[in-house]
Nucleic acid binder design. Structure first.
Lengths: 247, 247
DNA sequence: GTTTCCACTTGATCTCTATCAAGGTTTATT
DNA sequence: AATAAACCTTGATAGAGATCAAGTGGAAAC
């Protein structure tokens, strides 16, 4: 079965969304139906988009920036449970409320669809339901991969795993699958990284310094990262070299 | 929208599956179509049902016993990424292979459907696709809830969280939502619990002893557990008392 | 130009959990 | 009844990461 939506980071001319996600522009048949319910929203870094328990009256895709899903315990401990990069889908068709906080980790633009009409369209067009199921399965795979990181990896491996995810995601967007050094800007503070990895920000800082000292990464300033050897980084992450991350 | 399948632990006369899962007997319209492709399979405790990467040519529901999903690193570290209790759905419609090992943790009976015809039926009957999306979202919620456990909870809280999940699940099956002590048999070895919680089996044993010493649980033998006060257990787990676990 | 603030780094120490090791129970096997 | 094989418990010790604390650097605000 060939997917009705183009996927995997191909852009179309008039839409900024990379098409791992559902997008109106990708399917001429749906375009008119969606045009009316589509809108863009911008958020500032640090802004909370939704609190856990809030009514969620839209679904959408990240256009630019990074959003994060966070769970919080009563005493304030927090764990990031999802990182939404450009092209990722946000939303829970058929669900009333958000089960975790959704935050803009950086300045963020989202392409939103009002939920009701989106769901109606989903019910009428089976391939969209099918596509959503596939995306949800992707997210489930990514969440489970992350459970291994959280449960069994050392601090150093955790950092390497996170850098590896961001590097791979970034590389696949900027220049299609070539070798050579990978360069990118870290979009997360040390604290956000710690929240994602189940560490403290001090440990994150120490391990980044260690990876730098050992030549696994190069840093200019605090955010600009160069990965001279991706294979080496993935060894440090404890992954089989071919890698199975899906985020 | 009312679900076409009965859900939430109601049994019908001729089917052993509790209906959080897709099941032929729950929808007369689909019954005949499914009859031909449905079959039961039994597994012994410890048996591996699927290795990571194997072709997955069926989907199905757990009828009795417990199955687990496990990820393994090259050096042997393992993390359980899912626990499948009776009524849980196993399978990845539209996917070729399993991304993790599937094992029978106890003796296990599954109700299986051959994948191809199941997928065809899914494509023809939108409400089954819809139901599968909802179930996958449930699993995603559970996985993300578990990320908080793995990333931020102490060993004691982790044990309490696991007991809490099993107790709640068990209680909702055996006697509909009443108060009073909850009694059940632990279906997992200390080692399996450790693999699920990102701990060692020694730490699991020590924390269970501690919970017993502190009167949070009572143990007869090594597996028979009594929870005198479920609220107390949930406090120990660090949950807001109303609890959000979805497993 | 100075001050303030925020993100980050580094050091010292402590604590929780892993690790190593030994022994105990229960259940199955001979 | 004796033996073996899982499974579990408990103790001693070590180590990874948390916690507490001080200080650096850079950018924005005054």
């Amino acid at each position: 079965m060939t997917p009705m939506f183009k996927i995997d980071h191909t852009n179309c001319a008039d839409c900024p969304i990379r098409h791992r996600a559902v997008c109106a522009h990708c399917d001429a048949n749906e375009l008119e139906k969606l045009e009316g319910i589509k809108y863009y929203r911008s958020f500032e870094a640090g802004q909370t988009i939704l609190w856990s328990g809030d009514q969620m009256n839209f679904v959408g895709s990240v256009v630019s920036g990074i959003a994060s899903l966070t769970q919080t315990m009563e005493d304030g401990r927090t764990q990031m449970v999802g990182l939404l990069l450009p092209s990722d889908f946000v939303g829970r068709p058929g669900r009333e409320s958000a089960p975790y906080d959704v935050q803009a980790t950086t300045d963020l633009v989202m392409c939103c669809f009002r939920k009701k009409p989106f769901e109606e369209m989903m019910n009428e067009t089976p391939h969209i339901a099918h596509r959503l199921l596939q995306m949800t399965l992707d997210e489930l795979d990514a969440a489970r991969e992350w459970m291994l990181v959280l449960g069994r990896k050392t601090a150093r491996e955790k950092i390497a795993s996170l850098l590896s995810i961001i590097a791979r995601r970034d590389a696949s967007i900027s220049h299609e699958g070539n070798a050579g050094p990978i360069v990118f800007d870290l979009p997360l503070t040390r604290e956000a990284m710690a929240d994602y990895l189940g560490l403290t920000l001090e440990t994150v800082s120490r391990q980044i310094s260690a990876l730098k000292r050992d030549g696994v990464i190069t840093l200019e300033g605090k955010r600009h990262v160069t990965i001279p050897d991706m294979g080496r980084l993935m060894e440090e992450a404890g992954d089989d070299s071919d890698g199975g991350f899906l985020v």
